[in-house]
Structure formats: structure tokens, C-alpha cells
């Protein structure tokens, strides 16, 4: 009971995420996320940085918070270095316009439902370094363990306190058969 009361918020986030997932597009049909903001920052990178090191420095200058490491490094049509960062708030594409001495930041923010969907996977081993994401990661990971324990202890409590309820046994047995059949049909 105490575990459930403490992790109730995680249950809400997971429940909303699962319902929202029904409406997510099929793999390969997602399309490009819409750009929600664009800004250009005057900036010249220190000399002799390779692309990877430069991209890390660019992210620091960009003002973006709660994002992961730069990924998807490539050159655009003008041979400018461009890369992406991802975080719970969506994706941002950064382009270092070397000749112009500017850093272009294209923010593709996501909806609150998508934010919760990304956040539901947060843990101590995953997520941006900011304190909010770290605290949520600790809480979410704790809630995952609590969920596993509650699932198992819930069955124990049923068998220990109300073992003679016929409909409970029927429900349990029927779902066991259905899941086993579905697993067999999938594998």
C-alpha cells in the first residue's frame, strides 16, 4: 500500500503514456517533427576542434537544456556541420554556419503527451544531466521496482487473504491461458 501511494504519480505517467501510444504513428510513417522555434547565435568555434568536440561546445553555447549528447552528425548542402540533440522536450537540430560565424538552432518541441512518453523511460542510467531529469529518473526507477514488487505481492495478498473467490481464480486462469496462447502464436 505504501509503495503504491508513493509511486502513484509514476502510475499516472505510465498509464497516460500507454494510452497515448495507441495514437502514435506506425514505424516509418512518423514524418519530420515541426519546427517550433529558430534562433541564430553569433559564435565562432575555437580552432582545431573536430566535429564531435565542436558539436559538444555548440550545444553548451546554444542555451538548450535537458538534452542528450549530439548525434546524427552530417554535412548539409553547403558543407556546414549539422547535428541533432534529443531530450524529453523533443528534438533540436543545430547547424554551425562556419563562414558566417553563427550557430543556427532549430527547435522541434513536442507535445506534453510526447514529453510524458519520453519521460516515462527516464532512469538513473538514462536522461539529461539536469537536476529535474535526474530526480525524475531516480523516482521513476524506484517506481519500476515498486511496480514489480506490487505485482507479485498483490498475488500473494490475494492468495493469503481471499483464496476462495471463484471469479478471481477464473479470471486469473483465463488470462493465463490467453497470454500463453498469444505468446505461442507470436513466437
Amino acid at each position: 500500500m505504501y509503495a503504491g501511494l508513493l509511486t502513484f504519480t509514476a502510475f499516472v505517467v505510465w498509464g497516460v503514456t500507454g494510452i497515448h501510444a495507441v495514437f502514435l504513428p506506425a514505424p516509418g510513417t512518423e514524418g519530420e517533427p515541426a519546427t517550433t522555434a529558430v534562433r541564430e547565435i553569433p559564435w565562432r568555434a575555437p580552432g582545431n576542434l573536430d566535429d564531435k568536440t565542436l558539436s559538444v561546445a555548440a550545444v553548451e553555447v546554444s542555451g538548450l537544456r535537458a538534452v542528450g549528447r549530439p548525434v546524427l552528425h552530417r554535412r548539409d548542402a553547403g558543407q556546414n556541420l549539422t547535428f541533432a540533440v534529443f531530450g524529453p522536450n523533443g528534438r533540436s537540430d543545430l547547424t554551425y554556419l562556419e563562414s558566417a560565424g553563427k550557430l543556427r538552432v532549430e527547435i522541434k518541441g513536442n507535445s506534453f503527451a510526447d514529453f510524458l512518453s519520453v519521460s516515462h523511460a527516464g532512469s538513473t542510467r538514462r536522461g539529461p544531466p539536469e537536476w529535474g531529469a535526474r530526480v525524475w529518473g531516480v523516482y521513476n526507477e524506484f517506481a519500476n521496482w515498486a511496480f514489480l514488487l506490487m505485482t507479485l505481492s498483490g498475488i500473494y495478498l490475494w492468495l493469503a487473504t481471499r483464496p476462495k473467490i471463484v471469479w478471481a481464480w477464473a479470471t486469473f486462469g483465463l488470462t493465463a491461458i490467453l497470454i500463453a496462447a498469444l505468446w505461442w502464436g507470436t513466437r
Binding site: 505504501y2 502513484f8 505517467v13 538548450l64 535537458a66 524529453p88 523533443g90 518541441g109 539536469e130 530526480v135
Partner: peptide, 21 residues
Amino acid sequence: LIALGFAVPAVALFATRLSGG
């Protein structure tokens, strides 16, 4: 427990959401 289990993650999520963009 409910208050703690709501306040801490809610503030953390809120802070992360506000920091985006």
C-alpha cells in the same frame, strides 16, 4: 506519502519541461 510521491516528481517533471526549448 502521497504528497511526497506527487510533489517531488511533479516538480522534477515541471522543471524539465520548463527547461526545454
